[in-house]
Design a protein around this nucleic acid. Structure first.
Lengths: 176, 176
DNA sequence: TTCCTTTTGACAACTAGGTTGTCTATCTAG
DNA sequence: CTAGATAGACAACCTAGTTGTCAAAAGGAA
């Protein structure tokens, strides 16, 4: 079968919904609708990115890269900004470094630190990603209309709840 | 930090969006909005389910259980209906069996098969889950209005695209 | 300066939920 | 009877996380 969705695992649930449509569970169906829509977008973007010369570049890499470009200059800070443990952030950095999207140099001020910077290729992939998402946004507008999309964004913002995303749960994670 | 979201991994991306709000990437933001909203619902439902006496019951278990109740009487069929390999389905079945939600008995007609059935506790957890999702649906209606929610469901159905969910990719998976 | 505490990043081991590949037992069609 | 398909089990692996532990470096106080 090869799941092979670049969105990764954990999104397979929605297929159950597709196969069996007469489920009659309004709340759950709505949740699955949200998931399916997200997956649709993320997969489309990742596939397009792969076609344009950036294979193996996942959504999670995009957000990490953006956080680095935005001032997350070391692993701990990246973990904090992306809401994961510094260990998980370090793994992402390793992947990004191996693919040539970031550089990791010694920090002259603090010998413990490794200074992160985005390479030219990293800048490229971010620009391309933005362009792709803009296209997708336009496609959605074409499909359901500008106003409907704007309404949805407004309502989803309420449902998602900014308060659920406060500066998060803690900085010192992973037993340290 | 303990991510500890019952929704599981792969959904952490959205935190990046929360921390940095002035990102100005409309398409990507919309995708994250969808993800955040889904996660909100799924986490709320799973947490509530845990509080009502069904800990460690994840969304993925709910859908598997529902598929079994709905006629997926063996691992291969469950895999097909939920869109995963039969091996993955078997793992889920094992978990559900250990938690007492399904029974696995020998099939009298076909000695290769194990016959799956939902236990009384399995029936209970499904009913409770339905009630919880209905509550969440009502809360959403209260938050953004009945019509707005109905509109969103309609539009999301278009965006998600039923065609992306055709009877799936193949039945014989995993090298067999 | 020495001592204590904090921070940084690394390493190992683990989890969840998937994936392939291989294998045996069993069923079924010719 | 035999050949091929099917069911499920087992092992190894993947991804993207998690804890726990650790050494090296930094920083503050006596």
């Amino acid at each position: 079968m090869s799941n092979s969705s670049p969105t990764g695992n954990g999104f397979v649930i929605l297929r159950a919904w597709c196969v069996k449509e007469e489920m009659s569970r309004k709340g759950a169906d709505f949740a699955l609708l949200l998931l399916a829509s997200f997956r649709r977008l993320a997969d489309a973007a990742t596939a397009e990115l792969a076609r344009r010369g950036y294979p193996d570049f996942r959504p999670v890499h995009d957000f990490a890269l953006r956080a680095i470009a935005d001032g997350a200059v070391n692993a701990t800070e990246l973990g904090y900004r992306t809401g994961v443990s510094k260990q998980a952030a370090a793994k992402t950095i390793t992947a990004l470094e191996q693919q040539g999207y970031v550089n990791r140099t010694d920090d002259t001020d603090d010998a413990r630190r490794k200074f992160l910077s985005v390479t030219a290729r990293g800048q490229e992939v971010m620009q391309t990603g933005e362009a792709i998402f803009e296209n997708l946004h336009r496609e959605m507008e074409a499909a359901i209309g500008h106003d409907a999309l704007a309404d949805m964004e407004r309502h989803l913002t309420r449902l998602a709840g900014k308060d659920a995303c406060s500066p998060w749960i803690g900085r010192n994670v992973g037993g340290d």
